[in-house]
Design a protein around this nucleic acid. Structure first.
Lengths: 229, 229
DNA sequence: GATAGCACATATGTCCGACATATGTACCGA
DNA sequence: TCGGTACATATGTCGGACATATGTGCTATC
């Protein structure tokens, strides 16, 4: 039998075990968001461990946003914030290059796939706002300012999606974009193609085009990044 | 001044404050992944709090995957798993309906936007695999089995993207899909349009079409969900 | 001189008991 | 009926003790 079959012995700490057991317990359906959990001492006794260890495990769930605690009331099961935890670790200093690349690529995919939603939900105000950004971008001769407006243009597209989860996802990726942008800014081997769709092209497509047309123009607009992924 | 300007006093617990302070400290750049942090007692002393409280805060970082601890070595800063934390709370019993709807919509966006990546990375084996799934799907007369194969078809498309982050993202959404699927299965007011693109159409497009064509067919294929979002 | 084996130092892991603090509740008096 | 007070209670914080694993260096043995 190959050595790979020899799985290492799981030596989880007490707190890890408690954490797993509690997660299981919560998800078995005994509680729903809003319910109060048994008190710490009772949990500790039921599990046959110290209150300290239980508290440490519960503390972890607080971080995940699965529970909240109130003095003299107890611990309450709450609705977690799915993106909140992701946000906390979304830091270029902590992530590796490959993960950042993948996140960036995911952003490109989303931006192209956004077409049909935008056409369903956009308002005349949105178009006007995009116009304004594109105008200022064209007039500006400061590189930093143009970059800021570029990000703002795309951020507004996300906002137009009306999907808060997508909007937040994009927002938390901004620090990553900065890194990738910097890398691209220093490369001289990449030249944007002459037919690259501009922000104005995208606006025009939104104004009197189709979702399919928008997707194609967006792919062209992002070509520059896509090609190097 | 409106009452909304009267922000509630932040009464964070000791552990919360320690957590914030440490997160700040870590991200200030004193450490990089692989480095060992100061020992618990030193941190406690530096912050002027008890070791218990410091341990509880550190325990939270373990949950986030920002640190790992080794006996007699210390606590080591590690690379967090961005999706890991999200995965833990991705449970239909914990999330609210609106968030699930948004996540589902995000999935539709990604699937449509995946076009250009698939064309860049797919292999003949991938096409073959898709064919096989589509075949079995067509031959099966069990609703559950067909549903399983449907999920598998789409899962393989994600796999073809070669982007682990996207793949994992899709995987963790599967429990959510089940819920949405169940809702749709019980609705009688939705009838798929006659022109809906099938899995075979998608395969054909991959075989001898274009990214733009794939996106359009995928939009048609998913129309059924899109229209109700 | 190389090495197996031992003792020791050290940092995390677990537990206990005590007290602080906030808050719900019951009681009481004007 | 209403307002205030005292009490009970569950979480929050702390200090200290001991358990346990692991790195390190000394030592005996060949």
């Amino acid at each position: 039998m190959p050595i790979t079959r020899l799985r290492p012995i799981e030596h989880l700490t007490q707190v890890d075990k408690i954490e797993n057991r509690l997660e299981e317990y919560f998800k078995e359906g005994h509680f729903k968001p809003g319910d109060f959990l048994p008190k710490e001492v009772d949990i500790a006794q039921a599990l046959g461990v110290s209150r300290t260890a239980v508290r440490e495990a519960l503390s972890r769930f607080k971080t995940l946003g699965i529970i909240e605690s109130k003095k003299n009331r107890g611990m309450m099961l709450t609705r977690p914030d799915v993106l909140g935890n992701m946000q906390r670790v979304m830091d270029p200093r902590l992530l590796d290059a490959e993960t950042m690349r993948e996140m960036f690529e995911m952003r490109l995919v989303i931006e192209i796939g956004l077409g049909h939603i935008l056409f369903r939900r956009m308002t005349p105000d949105d178009i006007e706002r995009l116009e304004e950004i594109a105008d200022r971008e064209q007039r500006s001769d400061d590189r930093i300012e143009r970059l800021r407006l570029d990000v703002e243009f795309h951020a507004h597209l996300y906002r137009m999606s009306g999907n808060d989860t997508i909007i937040r996802f994009q927002n938390m990726l901004i620090p990553i974009f900065d890194i990738v942008d910097k890398v691209h800014a220093t490369r001289t081997d990449i030249t944007p193609p002459s037919h690259r769709a501009t922000h104005r092209d995208l606006i025009e497509e939104l104004r009197s085009g189709t979702p399919a047309g928008f997707r194609n123009k967006m792919e062209s607009h992002l070509w520059y990044f896509l090609d190097k992924m």
